[in-house]
Amino acid sequence: MVVLNQDDIKNVFSMEDAIQADKDALKLYSLGKSAVPLRVNLDVPEHEGHSLYMPGYSADANALGVKIVSVYPKNIEKGLNSVPATMVLLNSETGEVCSLMDGTYLTRVRTGAVSGAAADVLARKDSKVFAMFGTGGQAETQLEAILTVRPIKIVKVFGISIERAERFAERMTAKFGEKFGVEIFAAKSSDEAIADADIITSVTTSKKPVFDGRLVKKGCHINGVGSYTPEMHEIDEYTITHADKVYVDTRNGVLNESGDLIIPIKNGTFSADRITGELGEVIAGKAPARISDDEITVFKTTGSAVLDIVNAQRIYENALKKGMGSIIEF
């Protein structure tokens, strides 16, 4: 059994690799070439947390496994990761566990990459200004993914703590500023963040909208990442109901789990049949993409085990080729 930590994964798997893996995974899902039950979400109210169990299998990707991930927002106050996770990868031929890997970093990279995949498929090619809401554990890879697929020159970060947003902007400037030729700074308000934004990504655990959709400019692409329960609602109803096209990673996941769409549907202002398509359907040529530079597009993701198993399998294969990881036996 190969054990892979964060450094091992970084050494064998790039953001470009993850974006391609996510595109392939969502295409397999939308073509019915994977088995992905709706994840089990256990509420842990005593600690304001959730524990999720995400199994999946795809014969075409030779990928089988389960990710165990928890979401504990208050961990930030304890100096701990707010989204700890472990990935258990199985040999699809024998059913034996072949790898354990850092699911926390896997979650970060594949979740960032799915926003990158959506932006690559849906956002304007000339996108220059990026607004990001959220500065937690998921934020860095969300930023890296967008910088990887579009020629972004300005990044405006907004969070509930201006001090955290400023510290995040400083760290990201040191890491990505010179590499991508980008200016990164903390916005003082939500309105300032989205002003002139070509791409907006929200990765928060908010139960109320984090920006005003009426101020979104024409041609903007929006990624909704953080809402994973029916009560979470970081993208406002106006954005969903007035977007030219609305996409999801999986209909099953979003329509059962995300308040961003569930709430407008309950209010009668939106309906499931107004979803333009799954991102995998667009990639497979079965749903339309952007056809005009003026269209506002929205992509909502709640995550799917198909992303985890395909990324994990490719990480494992790359690690074997490069001799990375530690070997353990029961």
Rank of each mutant, 00 (worst) to 15 (best):
V210M: 03
I199G: 06
I154T: 14
T135M: 01
D198P: 11
V155N: 10
E234F: 04
S161H: 06
E163Q: 15
S115W: 00
T229K: 14
L122C: 08
V114M: 08
P151T: 02
G224S: 13
I184Q: 06
T135N: 05
V182N: 12
G177V: 04
V121Y: 02
P151C: 05
V121R: 06
K208Y: 11
V129I: 15
C220Q: 02
I235D: 07
R124C: 04
G219M: 03
S115N: 15
I146H: 10
V225C: 08
H242I: 00
G224R: 00
A174I: 01
T201G: 10
D120P: 04
T241Y: 00
H233E: 06
K128S: 15
A186C: 14
A243Q: 10
R171N: 09
H233W: 12
S189G: 13
R164Q: 13
K217G: 07
M172E: 15
F158G: 11
A195W: 01
H221N: 03
E163W: 04
K245Q: 08
V121W: 01
L122R: 05
D191S: 13
F158K: 12
E237A: 06
A145W: 04
A187I: 03
V155Y: 11
F211H: 05
A243D: 07
V248S: 06
V182L: 04
I184R: 08
L147H: 12
T201L: 08
T229R: 15
G224Y: 01
A118E: 07
D212T: 12
T148S: 14
A119Q: 09
G177P: 13
E231Y: 09
S189C: 11
K175D: 09
P230Y: 12
K217L: 03
V157S: 10
D126W: 01
T148E: 15
M172G: 10
R150E: 02
G116E: 10
F180I: 07
T205N: 12
P151K: 02
Q142C: 10
A123I: 03
L122F: 04
S115F: 03
G159C: 04
F180H: 15
Y238Q: 08
A139P: 13
D212L: 02
K153S: 13
A186Y: 00
A119R: 06
I200H: 00
